[in-house]
């Protein structure tokens, strides 16, 4: 694994207020990194610092080894980005827009433009003015604009904002494909958790300007211990029984039965208890927590710590 983006102790201060506080993380090639946080947490600010739109108060950001502060042109030549909405020149055609941005990078040929247009599926409409485009098409044109110069790093701020489910899926597929096939490092920010779950390999959670956690999506969703649901009717009785036999476990009543947080090895013992007490057991299943639940859990935890 090779880190293409290194974010080192970055702090951003505006008028004495710390907007971003000592953030550090790396993103590797071929990886989709999700940047998750509630509105106003500092996702967009961090992304703007990575692409050099706003200055860094302390710390440094390196892209492919070049510092964005001291070696801006080299660093940014490896980056393709959409920051918030992909605003284009509406009075020009999609093609003119791409031509415009292509001229600003070294060695982007006309063939390359055509290839990128083909890739995002805009070939039919590329000669039309951007003001006639739908939001989805603008988003795709935005993606095309990022890919013109074959960047190593792709940064997409809220890429699915305002898209319909088909559009979201399309963008998601593109992103996964670019990371897998072109070995790009992709940073995606969003507050839509379900989507991050499907798109990302790793997730960093930012809250109040601080990076509170970085985890692999897989670990993140599952956490350390699992929750199993026992499908049964006499829920109260089951809960009482477990309280006596396994006081260390947390038991919750759900609509189907009871949910118990525990390890797999403990299942047979619990089943034995239910059977001996004549409770009819209809099924046992593992409950995977959604990213959303985990996210709220983590942010709540940290907030609790912060408030104490």
């Amino acid at each position: 694994m090779e880190a293409v983006i290194e974010i080192q102790n970055v702090t951003k201060q505006i008028k004495g207020r710390k907007i971003i506080d000592q953030i550090s993380f790396d993103v590797n090639r071929g990886e989709v990194f999700g940047f998750l946080g509630p509105n106003g947490a500092g996702k967009t600010t961090t992304i703007r610092m990575i692409v050099g739109l706003i200055g860094i108060t302390e710390g440094d950001i390196k892209i492919a080894g070049h510092s964005i502060r001291t070696d801006f042109e080299k660093a940014v030549s490896h980056v393709g980005a959409i920051v918030e909405n992909p605003e284009m020149y509406k009075f020009m055609s999609g093609y003119d827009n791409l031509l415009h941005f292509a001229r600003m990078s070294a060695n982007v040929s006309k063939e390359k433009i055509d290839e990128v247009v083909e890739l995002v599926g805009l070939t039919d409409r590329i000669k039309d003015k951007v003001k006639t485009y739908s939001l989805g098409m603008r988003q795709r044109l935005g993606l095309a604009q990022c890919l013109l110069h074959d960047p190593d790093v792709l940064i997409l701020d809220e890429p699915t904002n305002g898209l319909d489910p088909a559009g979201i899926r399309e963008i998601r597929d593109h992103i996964r494909m670019l990371a897998r096939e072109r070995n790009m490092a992709v940073i995606v920010s969003s507050h839509l958790l379900s989507e991050m779950e499907m798109m990302c390999d790793r997730i960093g959670i930012i809250q109040q300007g601080m990076l509170v956690d970085v985890q692999l999506v897989h670990d993140f969703i599952n956490g350390a211990e699992k929750v199993y649901q026992f499908e049964l009717i006499e829920k109260e009785k089951a809960k009482e029984l477990l309280k006596h036999s396994h006081p260390q476990l947390s038991v919750e009543i759900t609509s189907e039965g009871v949910a118990v947080a525990m390890t797999r090895e403990e299942i047979p013992a619990i089943v034995k208890i239910f059977v001996s007490e004549d409770i009819s057991l209809y099924g046992i299943e593992e409950v995977t927590k959604s990213l959303e639940e985990r996210f709220l859990e983590i942010t709540k935890e940290k907030e609790g710590v912060a408030h104490v």
Binding site: L53, V76, A81, I82, V83, E87, K90, F101, S105, Q145
Partner: peptide
């Protein structure tokens, strides 16, 4: 005003 400044300034041009 157009918001295009963001795309303009993230090119390898000072």
């Amino acid at each position: 005003n157009w918001g295009t400044i963001k795309l303009l300034l993230i090119r390898p041009v000072s």
